[in-house]
Design a binder for these strands. Sequence first.
DNA 1: GTATTATCTAAGTCT
DNA 2: TAGATAATAC
Length: 771
Amino acid sequence: MSLLEQLNDVQQDAVKNTDGPSMIIAGAGSGKTRVLTYKIAYLLEKGVDPFNIMALTFTNKAAREMKARIEQLVSSTEARNVWMGTFHSIFARILRIEAEKLGFPSNFTIYDTDDSKSIIKKILKELQLDDKIYKPKQILGRISSAKNNLISHIDYNNNPELTQVDKDSGKGQLGQIYTIYQERLRKSSAMDFDDLLFNTNVLLRDHPDVLIKYQRRFKYFLVDEYQDTNHSQYLIVKRLAAQTENLTVVGDDAQSIYAFRGANIQNILNMNKDYSDLKTFKLEQNYRSTQNIVGIANAIIRNNKKQIKKTIWTDNQMGEKIRLSSTSTDNEEGSNVARTIFEVKHNERANDSEFAILYRTNAQSRAMEESLRRMNIRYKIYGGLSFYSRKEIKDLLAYLRLVINKNDSEALLRVINYPKRGIGQTSIDKLRLEADRLNISLWSLIENLENSNILAKSTSIRIIEFVNMIKSFQLDLKTKNAYDLASAVAKGSGIYSTMYNSRDDDEGVMRFENMEELLSGIKEFSEEESGEVDAPEIRTLEEFMQDIALHTDADDKDKDDGEYVTLMTIHAAKGLEFPYVFIVGMEENLFPSMLALNSRVELEEERRLFYVALTRGEKRVFLSYSESRYKWGNLQYSEPSRFLSELEPKFIDDQTADLIMSEETSKTTAKKVNKSTTKGKTPLPKTKATPKTTKSTPENLTPINRESRGVSDNQANSIKVGMEVFHDRFGRGKVETIEGEGKNKKATVKFKNNTSKVLLLQFAKLRILKQ
DNA sequence: GTATTATCTAAGTCT
DNA sequence: TAGATAATAC
């Protein structure tokens, strides 16, 4: 069969093993997606009905691309009938079909994190709890992890262990908050992200008829990125696949980076306990990266204790060694990266789209952005403040949400007085209190406001006008297409003209344009083919809004598949690959994150994250760190990441290797610096604090091309306490102590500016000045 | 009820 | 730094 010819032996075995449970442990770059794609194609060629296949992917974009590829492979459009998508979107779809079984309307709203947070804040206010103790984010985290482990608010409150933990941390009322939170969601006919999975479990658990229906419908299950599934997802798959056990999971424990949101690596490790006849396939050949990249990644991951044994290897070329660079400020790091991209582009005739800049936190994008702009390099930032989380977009979406689901109180509160229509906070508070007392949704209350006199007449009239406006939109839900209705809402609500009139500055223009962009997106949707054969039906607003909350900009159709450098967090880069990868901000307390330093488990997750970052690279990988960085508007000094000292030198570009130091550094300097920047109310003037900052003139940016004047390995051994030495970056210094043996031999050197650094002698090319 | 100003606090990763 | 919220004036 021609399909199989394009695969290696193990890949073929994995693909041909269609029936029964199987697990594919797929190392980075080993053709995991390929195997999944081909397996589905193979199933289709064998005559399996696409309607019987469910494939769960990590992003919707991945699903879309996979579908397109399968269509090519089997040269048929049959593939579009495979149910393929993320857990959240697939099960949201099923939940809408079965909603009434759970007491939800099928047009329930999906609340995003902002909605959830705002509910929590309101509850805290009502219970008069201090939001410094009850931090909304933490509370949500706790509720989320409860849900991911299928602990309902009732279970939670009945579980003495959980409630004791809360009491001990001074948050005894957390369980109560959880309960009220769930009541609010239900009253709003809304589910949060975790509810989508939780409620799917409830559905399949409590409604055997539904379970059987979907078990009959789906006969083959494929799950990608299985290492990042949580308990809730695990159970859904287990329940659905119980009938046929035709389950293929694909994953790599070394790339598990979502434990923080409940991913449970045990799901992979315990597969053979759940399925005694499990077949395991290990894909260990890397087709993506050079030997240098594979080598360095292997060396890094080796430092983790917990992992499935496997040897990733490659037949690819050696390639260039990994380059390190350091700069004194984060802005310089940016211009250094931009300049390197510029050079590589010309020297190796690469396109912008072949480059990716990866970072640990979204906040780091800014320094990169500015430098790229200065160098006229086109770029695109993924994540961060996404399109859908902009205020103006949320405002319009809130109207649309309210029209679709009138019980959506979060949406209602957002727009009831926007644009201003004279309904102030006091009135709104009264309404909320009253709705709560009567135990009805806000909408039910204001819909019948005539009969109540809790508000002044004039205010009541304004509210009734608002209600009537929304009602008039609702009338058109089934008859108008998404775009016609949405633009009617934008104009009728006054939001359009408000935005139009606020274009007096750049921000205002942006806002207006964003709103226009949303509308034109809806227009495009309305005009799209519905996919169904000769379906003359219109595409409604309800359809458009269905999974808008699940939409991320990584999912965006690459409309302008133009040339640009990609900027994203390492998390977002999972599953992607680029010829040239820059990993920036390799600093202690940033990567690994300060918050991960407390436990081995979290530190290992950071290391896996680094592993993921490294293995995105095909041809070359560049690492960099900065000696200082702005955080909260303050300049903070930083030390090189401990991960740099784990890099194996033979894969590192010699001329840059001396930038590696061990994680330990002078405590005296660190303290001194902290004092002057954080304690003193007057932070150091910027010019003074960053003496080395220069206006991105390439000459003095990085030491990348600096001539190497280091001593040889043997000479490193001859360095003794008391010697005066010279370091390319730090200058003259005196050796204070020496510790460690061989590879780990390091010296504490006190330099002339009174900073002492701990240097790994194998990297730090010290010249001996005086014996 | 609304507009303006002052003060606070946050940035860890994501569906 | 910047956005979110509280305090204040109108």
